[in-house]
Each structure stands twice: as structure tokens, then as C-alpha cells.
Design a protein around this nucleic acid. Structure first.
Lengths: 221, 221
DNA sequence: CAATTTGATTAACACTGTTAAGCAGATTAT
DNA sequence: ATAATCTGCTTAACAGTGTTAATCAAATTG
């Protein structure tokens, strides 16, 4: 590729850049509008025609920037996964004590779910097929965010505060419990009020960690 | 109302009965076809036009027997709730030992979820709004099936095998854990194979019951 | 035998995601 | 500068969806 030297060439290059810039702008505008609509209407009431109307474009224009509806939704979920992963890592980095770490991770997970109910529902309840979609320009699947959990469990076992056992099984148990509470609240908020859920977090984390602590202990005997 | 005495009156009554019989037949035929379609296509691919085609009727005919799509789906969910409730009661009645009872209930819950994934998803994950719909001819809401769980927890506390505490909170914790595992498997079977889930049930129930056993014990200290 | 009710149908509306054809304006080539 | 091409976007259209209104024949009633 040769450097642009003449004025005409520079202008052409600038124009070209401006166009890809505008292209990215519109893509971002679509995602912004889509995100708004998703939060307002939920996934069931989320339609491309409404997204398009919101930004003053025809519905089919979206197809010039996203392959189909799924790809647009997945872009939104992907942003949520980034936030989720960061918050989990932040929690894990807040302490070195394995038990405290597990508790912090649990809290971070809970808070993400309670503060991002629509996205949580999409990520873990409705469109979890996306979890295993290979992402362009990324070698790790989205599910990789969970290494912070397995790492903490591993550290707990190595430090001797958790009974030796299968790291995956332990992590799955812990995950099940927090996911269970969050998803129950999301799907039936009428049954469990948000304040009750927020008040139950510590108790539930106690049960989870306590259950793992003496895994084969008094529960069996 | 006068008893039918003349022959004509008796014929008329028989004909009338036959008609309501046929009416109930068609209603049942719709539900059967709908149930099949639901299991084959899942809730997302479930449409009234396909149900109608399956029984050789026009789509709008369904509206003569059900108010709308929701009412049809809810009828199906309702049948599932009946089965669910029976299986839970059966499990609770299998033993008088509170701990054994909790374990049996947990197993029954798990098995229902694993064997009726589509309905479980509808009941607890996608259309749980139905949980709180008042049902005609029934005074108890569907959620009442959960008294078997709270009863078992209550019995465990009274028998002294579970630490004294809030029955609702205990039940919610136990429910969260089993629901968490079942729903994680349902929404991401690629992550957890059915065999792994089935193998995890006992371990998870151990953690749940163990966690409740010494609630405020070594987990905190 | 006439009037009316009943069970089902077709037509239609307002949506949905998606594809194909067309069109005006910017860009490029001659 | 003019002609050709390309680009971004739009309208039209297709195949679906749930749902309502109008219709029609057949059974039931008077």
C-alpha cells in the first residue's frame, strides 16, 4: 500500500475514513436503541422494526450491520458478559482468603443478576446457547468467566479450608445455588420480593460454603 | 327443572349430552395435539395454526374452546402441575424421617425436572406468571404444591434434626439449590450432560441438607 | 316447514423476521 | 466532464404469527 501524497488522494482517504466512521456510528446507534428497547420491553417485546423506528431508519437497514436478529441480540449479550466477567474478577481480586473470595464472588454474581435482570435472563435462562458460540477475534468462549469461580474453589481446597474433592462438582454446586435464587427471583418476583432476596444472599452463601466445608461430614451420618 | 317424560324429550336430552360430549372430545383432542407439538417443537416453535392442522381443523376453531393461546398453554401446564404435585406428595409420604423425607422430595423434584424438561421450563422459567393465576373451581393456587416442602422442613425443625430458624427461608434455600441445578441443565445441556446431573443429585442434596443442618455453625466461625 | 341457534370456516388486520428488487446519490474511471 | 460503478438505504414482498369479524351450512328448535 502506497502513502497518499496528492491532495486528491488525501481527500479520498479522509472521505473513506469518515464513511467507515459513520458506519460504526450507525452500528453503535442500533445497539444503543436495541439496548434501550430490550430494557423497556423485555426480550419478548423486542422487535427489529421497533429498533429501526427508534433511530429513524428502515427495518431492513439493520441487516446491513447485523446478519440477523440473533447477531444483534448476541452483541448486546456480549457486552453484558464483559461487564459480568469484570465484576467477577474484581470480586476475586478483592481478597486472598479463599472463603472470603468465594463469598465475594457469590455477592458479585448476585448483584449482577439483581441489577441486570433482563440480561441475566438472556445470558443464563433464555439464550444460553450463545454461551457456546465461538466469538470472532476471541479464542475463549464466554463461559471462561467462570474460571474465577473454579480457581477460588481450587484455592480453597489447596489451602485446606474446603474438603478435598472434585473442583468442577464443587463449583457446579455453588453455581447452582446462587443461580437458583437469582433465577427464581427473576421468574417470579411476586413470590420473592427483591428485598427478601437481597436479605437472603448472605444466608444462602453461608449454606453453600458451609455445605462444601464439611461435605461428607454430619450430613450423611 | 322437570324430568323428561316423553320420548321426544328423552331423545333431545341424549342428543344434547352427545353434543357436549363431542365438545369435550374436541377440547381434549386440541390439548393432546398441543401437548405433542409442545414436546416436539418446544415452546418457541409452538403455534396455534400447527395445532389446528394436526387435528384437521381451522386455526380459529381453537378459539371456540380456549380463550386464547395462553389459556391453552396454561391448561397443559396445569396438567403438568397436577403430576408434579402428586409426585411430590408421593415422595413425602414414602417415609416419616424428616431428613429422608427432604431427600425424597428433592429426588422427586429433580426427576420431574429431568423427565419433563419442556414443562419444567414453562412452569418455573418461562411462564411462571401462571403460578399466581387464580384457577377456576380451585381455591388453592398452583404454588400450593410446595407445602410438602415447607411441611418437611417444619417437621425437621420440630424433630430437632434441623437447626431452628425461618421455615420459609430454609425452604427457599433448598428450593434454590435443586432448581438451580435443574434449570442450569435445562438451559445448557451442552455444559452439563444428563448423566453428570443425575450423578450430582445426591451430592447436591447432601450439601443442601448438610448446609441447613448446622446453619450457623462452622461456616461462619 | 320456518326460525334460530351452533360449530366451524374464510377473510382480514396487525404484527413478526427476512429476502429481493429498486433507487438516488456518492465515488470512480475514462 | 461525462459515463459507469458502487454504496447505503428504501420499498415491496413472502411466509409466518395471534386474533377478530363476517359468513355459511347444518342441526335444533318453535
Amino acid at each position: 500500500m502506497i502513502e497518499p501524497v496528492t491532495r486528491a488522494e488525501r481527500v479520498r482517504k479522509g472521505s473513506s475514513q469518515r464513511r467507515v466512521q459513520e458506519k460504526e456510528n450507525l452500528q453503535q446507534a442500533i445497539m444503543d436503541a436495541a439496548g434501550e428497547l430490550l430494557l423497556e420491553q423485555g426480550y419478548s417485546g423486542f422487535s427489529l422494526r421497533q429498533v429501526a423506528e427508534r433511530i429513524g431508519y428502515s427495518a431492513t437497514t439493520i441487516y446491513l450491520y447485523f446478519k440477523d436478529k440473533d447477531e444483534l441480540v448476541f452483541s448486546l449479550i456480549d457486552e453484558a458478559w464483559d461487564r459480568f466477567g469484570r465484576e467477577l474478577e474484581q470480586a476475586a481480586a478483592s481478597t486472598t482468603n479463599p472463603i472470603e473470595q468465594l463469598r465475594a464472588i457469590g455477592h458479585a454474581y448476585f448483584n449482577f443478576g439483581l441489577n441486570n435482570a433482563v440480561y441475566y435472563q438472556l445470558m443464563f435462562m433464555q439464550r444460553s446457547d450463545f454461551l457456546f458460540c465461538p466469538k470472532p477475534d476471541e479464542e475463549l468462549p464466554r463461559i471462561a468467566s467462570f474460571v474465577v469461580l473454579t480457581n477460588a474453589v481450587q484455592a480453597g481446597i489447596e489451602a485446606g479450608v474446603l474438603k478435598p474433592g472434585d473442583v468442577q462438582a464443587y463449583s457446579l454446586t455453588a453455581w447452582s445455588l446462587v443461580h437458583g435464587l437469582v433465577s427464581l427471583w427473576i421468574s417470579m418476583p411476586q413470590l420473592i420480593s427483591e428485598s427478601v432476596v437481597r436479605g437472603s444472599i448472605d444466608t444462602i452463601l453461608d449454606v453453600a460454603i458451609g455445605g462444601l466445608l464439611q461435605q461428607q461430614g454430619s450430613a450423611i451420618s
